[in-house]
Design a binder for these strands. Structure first.
Length: 478
RNA sequence: UCCUGAGUAGCUCAGCCGGUUAGAGCAUCUGACUGUUAAUCAGAGGGUCGCUGGUUCGAGCCCAGCCUCAGGAGCCA
């Protein structure tokens, strides 16, 4: 294809009266002469002006919403208001027609629910263009931040054999004819004959393997897809999602929290700097959307203000025990407004409690630490009180838990004892325990839910709208 | 999985107490206009009322089951 200039560059061009070539998709065609063309490089369209009186009528009819075009013309200062520059077309070529009777996108507002059904085309809308450019920046910024700190990007396996991680239901991976799997004499499915010679599933977390890497490379992170076969039908769960899992040797919980907070702030500031226009658009979109909500449900801050606020304030850090005290004394608890009332120490925090702490009490991101060991995973480091573990959850407004992490139990005996208590088969995790046998050391790590981060930064309300092709119960289209 | 609500034209939605031929805006098509900004104006076409069964003289509307979607809860990131 002949050289073209991307629309983002043209709109920023200081030079005019030069010949340019653009390619993109038609958003609207107004007045038989004005094409709003978009190529995804920016949320803004470039206006193409067609000399319709001297253009073949058959060609004009093919300039329809969704069609892809190649346009050659002069980049000139715009005669009309609403844009600085426009292109006076000298040559318009239809690269791909788009039948207007069948093309589902119209130059109007569509519901997010409808766009979810045409996820293959929703990239062509302003909202989803902005979301996926922001998502890209956030992913890049995660790598940039960690790479600059000397972290090693470690590719942990997607297929795993251990089912002992306790992070939810896993999807089975098998080569068997599922209608007729080989069976043992006692009638059980004989996984010895399966592809891997044992039962395998898609990973629910790269953490345990990540720890193995950290115990040699010092600081590692994973950033890949993760799978949970939970029947979750919510705005913040997916069956396939992306997770960032740093694991650091010689880190305690404080270091862990500092890293997580630093990472979150860095990637948010990176997006604010590099995706200003997209975030302004999304901020406006959110404000429009909230107009239809009752006053008390609207957010106090605009999206941009909320992101900036998040950068300007340190996250509130407190222990689970302190949080319980606050919740016990809180108005909704006393007035029995909570669905689950806080009676005392030991209860798991429900969404309503987390939301109260983050959105009502502190009004900023909160890091809760030192949870009761009963409600946390086996690998978390036990505190001397015998009751709590060195866990930390970062709670964000509107999202809930965005990060879950801990200092890891590095003492072999303590770890084995906890595994026994929780019924985790030690023989399956012999390799994990080996790191505690040979040169064990204090270490820590966390998991950051990437889509939840994108949700927060874009101000979207449903996690299915911040991943290109969401996988959730009863849906694996596209 | 549980609770609540929804499913009517391509999209967003209205449809009275069960009663004749199911409506509107936008989109599409035809024509007009031609510096528009989701262009405007005039006209036209477009429906298995989610699916299955039931009640009734008669069902978009009532009943039962199922499917899908949305919001909330749980599981968690």
């Amino acid at each position: 294809m002949s050289k073209r200039t991307k629309i983002k560059a043209l709109l920023e061009s200081t030079q005019t009266d030069i010949q340019v070539t653009v390619m993109g998709w038609v958003r609207t065609f107004r007045n038989n002469q004005f094409i709003a063309l978009n190529d995804g490089s920016t949320n803004n369209n470039i206006q193409i002006v067609v000399d319709f009186e001297n253009t073949d009528e058959a060609l004009l009819k093919r300039i329809t919403t969704g069609a892809s075009l190649k346009v050659v013309g002069q980049l000139v200062a715009s005669l009309g208001k609403g844009q600085k520059v426009e292109i006076k077309a000298t040559e318009v070529e239809i690269l791909g027609d788009s039948d207007p009777e069948k093309y589902p996108l119209q130059p109007k507002k569509h519901s997010l629910e409808f766009l979810r059904e045409i996820a293959h085309l929703r990239f062509r809308t302003n909202t989803f263009g902005a979301i996926f450019r922001v998502r890209n920046s956030l992913a890049f910024a995660v790598h940039k931040f960690l790479q600059e700190k000397g972290f090693v990007y470690l590719h942990t396996p997607v297929i795993t054999a251990s089912d002992a991680e306790g992070a939810g239901e896993a999807f089975k991976v098998t080569n068997f004819d599922i209608a007729n799997p080989p069976r043992t004499e006692s009638g059980e499915i004989d996984y010895k004959q399966d592809f891997f010679g044992k039962a395998t599933n898609l990973t629910v977390s790269g953490q345990l393997e990540g720890e193995l890497g950290a115990m040699a490379l010092s600081d590692i992170y994973t950033f890949g897809p993760t799978f949970r076969a939970e029947n979750s039908n919510t705005t913040r769960h997916l069956a396939e999602f992306w997770m960032i899992e740093p694991e650091m040797a010689f880190y305690d919980l404080e270091d862990n929290m500092d890293l997580a907070e630093g990472l979150l702030k860095y990637v948010i500031s990176y997006a604010l700097e590099n995706n200003r226009e997209d975030l302004e658009f999304l901020s406006q979109r959110l404000q429009e959307e909230e107009k239809s909500k009752p006053q008390n449900e609207r957010s106090e801050m605009s999206l941009l203000d909320k992101l900036q606020f998040c950068l300007d304030n340190s996250f509130e850090r407190l222990t689970y025990t302190e949080a319980i005290d606050i919740l016990k004394e809180s108005t909704p608890n006393k007035k029995k407004k909570f669905q689950y009332l806080i009676e005392g120490w030991g209860a798991d925090l429900q969404s309503e409690h987390e939301r109260y702490l983050v959105e009502k009490h502190f009004k900023k991101p909160v890091i809760l630490t030192d949870y009761p060991k009963e409600i946390k995973a086996f690998y978390m480091r036990q505190n001397d009180d015998g009751k709590t573990v060195r866990a930390m959850d970062i709670l964000f407004p509107g999202i809930g838990e965005i990060v879950g992490g801990s200092q890891r139990e590095e003492r072999l005996e303590k770890l084995e004892q906890r595994m026994a208590e929780m019924g985790i088969p030690a023989e399956e995790l012999w390799w994990y325990l080996d790191t505690r046998r040979f040169g064990s050391c204090p270490h820590a790590g966390f998991g950051l839910g990437f889509e939840r981060l994108v949700l927060f930064v874009t101000g979207m309300g449903n996690i299915r709208d911040v991943i290109p092709f969401p996988r959730f119960p009863k849906n694996a289209e596209f």
